[in-house]
Design a protein around this nucleic acid. Structure first.
Length: 625
DNA sequence: ATAGGGTTAG
């Protein structure tokens, strides 16, 4: 076929069916230039494309990335046909132009072309992407009597539409009514249940279905991972690696399981999955590489994250990869690196988006780069064409608040074009606390009591501030309020990975087999610190007593237990990586700095907000978090 | 020519 096309095209025009076959042949081949030559050949000879030819041209252009040319052909077609409409609807769906897809469908319908089994799957997909259940139902009702609902493809896309619109009841009903179901229909429903957190229903379907393919497995694994069920996700992934498993993981599976490692900070597991990806030839996939960056960053290994980032082929280094790297630096308090990576990104010609700026601004905030952050914030919409969103304001309120510029922070909130959410008032409250501004703290706390009445932390912060100021009546009042709403504080816990297993400690925990040794170690610590000639920063400890576990003995905070366990069980010099479910307390922060110096250990603590790299007596956050 | 699993986030 190619030979025929490549023969000189100077001869007379061909009959339409020939042009149609040529364009048909070029679909998906990415020979745009050739397609354009044939197109010109036709145009020069005054042949106007009939419905069939136009349809093939639309398909050809759309499949080679030329959606504008496809649209042009469609708009200038003189002879509309079902086939042409189908081709255009398919092309638009391919490019995610959902609204136009639906418009074109209704235009088609109004011209008397009713649509067929090659039309509806795309229309329902568009409704699904828009979460437009109203439109979906409307199209559904149009075809109720036509019999197309019994087509397997149409049925599956309908079930998917209801799933994506959150209507699982109707999705299930349609699924049960389908006369023929293949594995795709099952997968759609499984994915639907996992999104909604209905694990039992998803598991039942997964067991029940006659054939499971890689998509079924991946839907389960990613569903668990996205809902924070990291163990379930990793276990199922292991099952898939079993030699007599029915399927092998592919790049989507690997990409989906990595967030489970990230969630539980399981660096060793993550490294094993990385090795698997390497052996399976999936390491060069840019999406896998991006998921690896995020995994390494969240498991505390920025070095490995950067290595993965550098290994991505520059041509394949897309927005998400840059965002992930910038965010990784930001969460570790490496603000300067976040900024320089952002500048590298601009030089590479990548257009930043709103996530880029949340990463960049939070990086500035976490490392005290106040002026740099403010400069980027001021010009982000005019220079980089990214609209300022709620989260960007949150970063800058945080930035100003940490720097003690509380009035400016408050003024910024008042000027926001949208309502400030809990993250913003939370930042302001934290800033009010650390800079001892009761007025601002009170103001922020009162907003938070309305916005998130169940969050115990807000009551505790304000109550501690009242206590510090000797305002005991207010303390009592807050306590009564808290009791009446039955607000429970969440218990602090920390874990550390050792020997392929997570060792978890609660505050004051004595249940660990090595508890005795751990407590002996911690009790000996103050003397060691003194002997080494360091003075604990008592001023800091005095006014920043842990807000979450005040009544508890500071020296048995969960992060200290985990670190003690780590020092006792690993060889000298091993980096310790500890994860905590709450914010690290000021007293522990001071203690860990000293431990890092005395025991010559690098200690990396991931708390609920960010990372702390303790080394040689100081922390990467420069006591600024 | 048609449907299903998807990585980044104060």
């Amino acid at each position: 076929m190619l030979k025929i096309i490549l023969q000189p095209l100077y001869q007379n025009s061909f009959p339409p069916s020939t042009y149609a076959s040529i364009f048909q042949f070029l679909v998906g081949k990415n020979f745009v230039k050739l397609g354009q030559q044939v197109h010109a050949h036709m145009a020069v000879r005054g042949v106007s494309p009939n419905g069939l030819v136009a349809a093939k041209m639309v398909a050809m252009y759309a499949s080679s990335g030329e959606i504008d040319s496809a649209s042009y052909i469609f708009d200038s077609a003189t002879e509309p046909s079902s086939l042409l409409y189908n081709a255009m609807i398919r092309a638009l769906t391919l490019y995610g132009i959902t609204k136009r897809t639906i418009e074109i469908f209704f235009q088609m319908h109004s011209l008397g072309f009713r649509g067929d089994n090659f039309t509806f799957p795309f229309v329902f997909k568009s409704c699904a992407d828009l979460s437009d259940v109203w439109c979906g139902k409307c199209v559904h009702s149009l075809i109720l009597r036509s019999g197309f609902v019994f087509d397997m493809y149409v049925g599956t896309s309908l079930v998917d539409m209801y799933v994506k619109c959150g209507d699982l009841i109707d999705a299930r009903k349609l699924f049960d009514e389908m006369p023929v179901r293949d594995v795709s229909a099952w997968n759609v429903l499984i994915a639907g249940y996992m999104k909604d957190g209905l694990f039992k229903d998803a598991e039942e379907l997964f067991e029940e279905m006659p054939i499971r393919n890689i998509v079924s497995w991946t839907a389960m694994i990613s569903g668990y991972a996205q809902n924070g069920l990291a163990d379930e996700s990793l276990q199922l992934f292991d099952k898939m690696l079993d030699p007599d498993s029915e399927v092998r993981p592919n790049w989507v599976t690997v990409m989906s399981v990595l967030p489970a490692c990230a969630h539980s900070a399981a660096l060793d597991r993550g490294k094993k999955i990385h090795s698997f990806a390497r052996e399976a030839g999936l390491e060069k996939n840019p999406s896998v590489q991006t998921a690896l960056i995020a995994m390494y960053a969240k498991c505390g290994s920025l070095v490995d994250a950067r290595l993965c980032f550098d290994q991505i082929n520059p041509r394949e280094k897309k927005l998400v990869a840059w965002n992930t790297m910038i965010t990784a630096y930001a969460s570790h308090g490496f603000g300067r690196e976040a900024v320089s990576t952002f500048e590298d990104m601009l030089r590479a010609g990548i257009q930043p988006d709103k996530i880029t700026f949340t990463g960049l601004l939070s990086g500035c905030s976490h490392s005290g780069l106040v002026d740099v952050g403010l400069r980027y914030f001021d010009c982000m919409s005019l220079v980089y064409f990214v609209e300022k969103g709620h989260d960007h304001y949150a970063c800058v309120v945080d930035l100003l608040g940490r720097a003690g510029r509380l009035v400016e922070a408050y003024n910024l909130i008042s000027q926001m074009p949208m309502a400030a959410g809990p993250s913003i008032w939370g930042s302001l409250l934290a800033a009010g606390r650390s800079h001892r501004n009761l007025e601002i703290a009170e103001l922020a706390a009162k907003k938070l009591f309305i916005l998130e009445p169940d969050n115990s932390g807000n009551y505790i912060v304000l109550s501690n501030m009242y206590a510090e100021a000797g305002m005991w009546e207010e303390v009592t009042h807050l306590r009564i309020q808290q009791k009446s709403r039955r607000i429970m504080k969440s218990p602090g816990c920390s874990w550390i990975e050792f020997d392929g297993k997570a060792h978890l400690f609660l505050g004051g925990d004595t249940s660990h087999p090595q508890a005795e040794q751990i407590y002996l170690f911690l009790e000996a610590l103050p003397a060691k610190i003194k002997a080494a000639g360091y003075m604990p920063d008592t001023t800091f400890a005095l006014h920043d007593v842990s807000e979450e576990e005040k009544e508890q003995n500071l020296s048995s905070h969960s992060e200290r237990l985990a670190i003690a366990f780590g020092i006792l069980n690993t060889s000298p010099g091993t980096v310790l990586r500890v994860t905590k479910n709450l914010r690290i307390c000021g007293d522990c922060h001071t203690a860990i700095k000293l431990v890092s110096k005395i025991y010559e250990r690098e200690i990396i603590v991931r708390d609920v907000n960010r990372f702390h790299h303790f080394k040689d007596g100081s922390c990467s956050c420069r006591d600024y978090w």
